[in-house]
Design a protein around this nucleic acid. Structure first.
Lengths: 131, 131
DNA sequence: TATGCACCTTGTAGTAACTACAAGGTCAAG
DNA sequence: CTTGACCTTGTAGTTACTACAAGGTGCATA
């Protein structure tokens, strides 16, 4: 598929896709005879992954690390293990925070539907567990 | 508390705290006689909230919206309701993605501990549900 | 065949959300 | 009375894009 299709399929600007290629985040695509980039389904999956990871608050560096785990076949398990453990910790923390926020938002929704204006603990929902 | 303490307590640079004040994200603090910013526990909670929300991938604009929900006492329920519903959708989507990623990381950990190098489906973990 | 659109390149510059200085000044604890 | 934390204004760097412009190729269609 060409860059325009890939852009549409993922909601990414073509310029951002080329940017990812320059940055080594997305592997360079094959080229057609007319020098157009020709993307595979693998590229599509990787790009979706990158975009999701970014909206989940991972930095480019972290995305790079996560992508590197993809081809860990050639690396010793111990190295990978540490990295995975670190990422897992962060993911788990994020889930906890988001779940707390979700609870609070749902609570707000319920109290609104009941037309009672309850107190809003939205700030507390994330601020409470003082790390 | 003074800016330095607040900075330490939240892992935020003093400069960032002043930046948030300029941007209206964090309400201006009281001032001591010597013109030092004097923060309350409320400021602390808000700042923790802001930082968490940011690492969860919310933009400043979204953080602003979420904070605005805090004092919804004066706004009609219908308006708040819509906003909450929208944020809730995003939060829920993020939790789903993160949970999928968590599963995959845990799987990698298990297969590493068993010293079997399994296939890595980390990209697929986020890329699969094609939106 | 000509028009127009998608693509190619390089390059510059803008945006968001910080982060880091510098310069020049005040305040307070040891 | 010096040192370090704070104050201000201002400029500039970083990350992760996003948006142009200029100049060129490929290709479908009127």
């Amino acid at each position: 598929m060409r860059i325009g299709e890939l852009a549409k399929a993922t909601g990414t600007k073509a310029e951002t896709i080329r940017y990812y290629e320059r940055e080594g985040i997305l592997p360079a695509a094959d080229r057609t005879d007319s020098n157009y980039r020709d993307y595979s389904d693998g590229h599509l999956a990787t790009l979706i992954f990158v975009r999701r990871a970014r909206t989940l608050g991972f930095t480019m560096a972290q995305v790079r690390e996560l992508l590197a785990l993809s081809d860990h076949e050639d690396k010793p398990c111990r190295d990978v293990d540490q990295l995975v453990q670190r990422q897992l910790g962060e993911v788990t923390r994020k889930i906890a925070d988001l779940t707390s926020l979700q609870d609070e938002l749902q609570h707000m929704l319920r109290s609104c539907q009941a037309d009672r204006i309850g107190e809003c603990r939205i700030v507390e929902s994330l601020a409470r567990p003082l790390r």
